[in-house]
Design a protein around this nucleic acid. Structure first.
Lengths: 324, 324
DNA sequence: CTGAAAGCGCTTACAG
DNA sequence: CTGAAAGCGCTTACAG
């Protein structure tokens, strides 16, 4: 059967207390005793039961992470950053998605109540703010990885969405474009407002079409504008997917990118390299966001107070063929 | 503080045993008593501690999942399938990646010894077969999600790689192509052998270039062949990434796709829709693989014996612009 | 139908 | 430097 601390204690002729001391590197153990215990541990291949340790200590060295879905192109990067950071610290990560909507969120919060983890990382809690506010007030350590960045009551990590929008505008302006079409994301997202504000602070855009982050919306926006012969010389889309749709529609209409119309996206997902031409875009450091968020949560669990201000990571304009 | 079973017992004026019975829906409880206990549970917002339950029961209702990385385009789909299935069953999923190589695998196996989970799901254990064989022999329930499919000693789920290769060949042949270039994946992968065998069983390929699943290898293979003026009328690449590289190189050389050279990939990752022209490819049902694997593991944990034969899911040729 | 008690495998005051 | 004992929050024979 499974090797327990009692087996080790017996084989080393000490008490469980002493084995526990060795395990947890308390320095009050005799050197020779310690060595003997360690030898037995190695020989028996003993590994403490995480459940028992967790129960006794009241914490689990596990964090929970909730994401909307794993199938969006940039989520994997964020989670990878989290997993790497968390592994370094010897923590585990329990993963949940909102794929089933409220059902999933309920499942997740019941795990919170079950104390399955010590703290949580949450990406984009659409319509679930109340839930997380309540958990936060109950004292659950939580860090938001938040595209919307407008919840000052939580520790969070975000990117410079406003500056990212501004950099897109500056880039277009510098290359002689001044009649842009802006295709936004869902308007209730804070990040969408920020990108738009930043862009307009540099380049007042007359043409603004409400989008929803899908390729479809990008394509349709361009098709409709071209159909009405509204003049524009460039597109700034609020994510790469809709930028790709716009780009495709421009070319399908017989116009060329970037000569007739330049296109700039946001995110820099892998696909951005594979459109024709490759997509100029505002890169968000997805993996770094995951690392930063996990680092903040772990620090908090380790006793460091959470930072007052959101951590904001820089975006970067990456110029490629669609807007050189 | 936290509400425990003792609090519930006290408030309902019964023993902890009875509360536990209600919690676990044993039918030996008086109806009125049961109702009263349930009412108290609801009023107090009591949720059992997963750690304590796990310790007492000897199982955790958690499964572990190990993947090579979360940044490959198809991994997210697989994990999403797993997460959905596992959530349905009321299980949690602890996620690990091999990002740090052997270091990560050690981290993972130590969690196994710590009984952090009841069973594991593993994708693509490159060079770690010994590790998992050992765990399997120790009695750990395990299901491989295995592109290589050549480990009959494990329960596993795979796809019809051989038939997938054959379908690519049939498609090319049916559209008048009979001088294909094949760009393989790493040759030690069973899936690569299968795709190659299937392809050649239909269309004996003279030109076979060893690749490594990167875009780079696809591009280089085509560039080198074009440089030596070796004639070929089509490309079958063992994944979409290298197919995209090949496609790009063909067009960069001034040839057209599919007129001069048709291109077929494998996987059907999201990017396949965004190459120019869109990529014809052999789709693997990634999410269904995750669902199937999770289902098998959960069934096993529930007492159903693991199937003798690997579960093999069908691939499907998706014709797009690159090889209509 | 119900409860007291032992046990799951650890940690942690407390005492020596 | 070391150990006996209580406790973490549950489940599960066992007895009634």
């Amino acid at each position: 059967m499974r090797v327990t601390i009692a087996d080790v204690a017996r084989a080393a002729a000490v008490s469980k207390t002493t084995v526990s001391r060795v395990l947890n590197a308390k320095d009050e153990v005799d050197v020779a005793t310690g060595a003997r215990v360690r030898e037995v541990i190695a020989r028996l291949g003993y590994v403490p039961s995480s459940r028992a340790v967790g129960l006794a200590r009241g914490s689990s060295r596990t964090i929970g992470m909730l994401v909307p879905t794993l199938t969006w192109p940039w989520i994997g990067e964020v989670v990878q950053g989290v997993v790497d950071t968390v592994e370094d610290a010897g923590y585990g990560i329990l993963l949940y998605t909102c794929n089933r909507g409220n059902e999933s969120v309920r499942h997740f919060t019941s795990q919170v109540s079950a104390r399955a983890f010590d703290g949580i990382l949450v990406v984009e809690p659409e319509n679930t703010l109340d839930t997380f506010t309540a958990l936060h007030h109950r004292g659950l350590p939580i860090v938001l990885i938040d595209d919307r960045g407008h919840h000052p009551e939580f520790p969070s990590v975000a990117t410079t969405n406003r500056e990212g929008g501004a950099s897109a505008a500056r880039h277009l302006l510098a290359t002689g474009r001044d009649r842009p079409l802006v295709i936004t994301g869902p308007p209730h997202f804070g990040c969408v407002q920020d990108r738009l504000d930043g862009f307009r602070s540099v380049l007042p855009a007359g043409l603004i079409v409400k989008g929803d982050f899908t390729e479809e919306c990008g394509r349709r926006a361009v098709e409709e504008l071209l159909a009405t012969a509204t003049p524009f010389d460039s597109v700034f889309a609020h994510n790469d997917l809709s930028a790709a749709g716009a780009l495709r529609a421009v070319r399908a209409a017989g116009l060329s990118v970037p000569e007739d119309i330049a296109v700039v996206g946001f995110d820099d997902i892998p696909m951005a390299l594979h459109t024709e031409p490759a997509l100029t875009t505002v890169r968000q450091p997805m993996r770094a966001m995951g690392e930063a968020a996990a680092g903040m949560l772990l620090a908090h669990l380790g006793g460091t107070p959470a930072p007052e201000e959101p951590v904001v990571l820089p975006t970067e304009l990456v110029a490629r063929g669609s807007a050189p």
